[in-house]
Design a protein around this nucleic acid. Structure first.
Length: 283
DNA sequence: CACTCTACCTGTGCGC
DNA sequence: TGCGCACAGGTAGAGT
């Protein structure tokens, strides 16, 4: 489940890795499953629009990647936009590398390389926009770079439960189920609490937790979840650890369902007492 | 506005 | 051993 830190790792690898995608030229695009192309674009049109373009840069906002393409034929930039959703992966490989049964899209490059998009669950999408602002307009500030004032100001506009709020990409972009749980644990705040339940100092603690978790996870190149991800080394404290002892206090971690999402927490470190907004029996 | 539900997918892991 | 089924999750869109 790539969230902001995993997506940022992909961006850095494709940009700064050796070889790099930057400066390569699209030879031809191969769509192996039509619904990988999002928006209202037909696969055929997508291939045509991208052909002969040069990759100039990759930017990220939340969990979205935007590849700036420049075509010799057109004066304007075109941005290839990618959302990996649950199981999508991007690789820069030799053009001779063999595909898998999960390969959905191959961008063949003139340099003997290929940008490949593999996705077992086939939830991920690739599409074209003229300006990333079209997409970013619907998103909140990026969770990695949002400053404290902005975060606190945006919190003031809501009275919702914190777990669904953190998952809401229009509030802050980039936090998914794993890092929502990790951030709330780090802050020592129960996920069922609402914004209205928090004091000003608790709101600052929450901001600091989100900030620190995001930066640490990016430095680790993503999470390390019982072998689910091969890359990252960020040690999850609560996600997927229900029944195991809390690393801080030893109490058995608990899994709840909050807003239809599996939600992991330490009942000792994230106390629920004095929360008036809760309906009885939920914990 | 806040929330809930459903659809989209398929590998995994459970119970029987 | 094998079958069926619930489950996992991010987002869009419809409904309450």
């Amino acid at each position: 489940m790539p969230e902001l830190p995993e997506v940022e790792s992909v961006r850095r690898l494709l940009t700064e890795g050796r070889p790099s995608l930057i400066g390569t030229t699209v030879d031809r695009v191969e769509v192996l499953r039509d619904n990988v192309i999002g928006g209202h674009l037909l696969a055929e049109q997508f291939c045509q629009d991208v052909q002969d373009s040069v990759f100039h840069e990759i930017i990220r906002h939340g969990k979205y990647l935007f590849f700036r393409l420049h075509s010799a034929r057109a004066t304007n930039n075109l941005w290839m936009t990618v959302h990996l959703r649950m199981t999508g992966r991007l690789f820069l490989v030799s053009d001779r590398a063999s595909k898998t049964m999960y390969t959905r899209l191959v961008v063949h490059l003139q340099q003997g390389l290929a940008l490949r998009f593999d996705d077992p669950r086939a939830f991920g999408r690739v599409w074209l926009v003229e300006d990333p602002a079209e997409v970013i307009a619907g998103l909140g500030p990026d969770a990695l770079t949002v400053d404290e004032d902005t975060f606190l100001r945006r919190l003031d506009h809501h009275r919702r439960q914190l777990k669904p709020l953190l998952l809401d990409q229009s509030f802050v972009a980039g936090i998914g189920n794993i890092y929502a749980d990790e951030s709330l644990f780090r802050a020592g705040i129960h996920p069922l609490k609402t914004v209205a339940d928090l004091t000003v100092s608790q709101r600052k603690v929450l901001y600091r937790a989100v900030h620190d978790v995001m930066h640490e996870a990016v430095a680790c190149k993503g999470a390390n979840i019982d072998g689910v991800f091969e890359a990252g080394c960020f040690p999850v404290a609560v996600y997927g650890r229900a029944g195991l002892p809390c690393r801080t206090c030893g109490t058995a971690l608990v899994k709840l369902r909050v807003a239809q999402r599996g939600t992991h927490l330490c009942p000792q470190c994230q106390p629920i007492e004095k929360v008036k907004s809760l309906v009885g029996g939920q914990v």
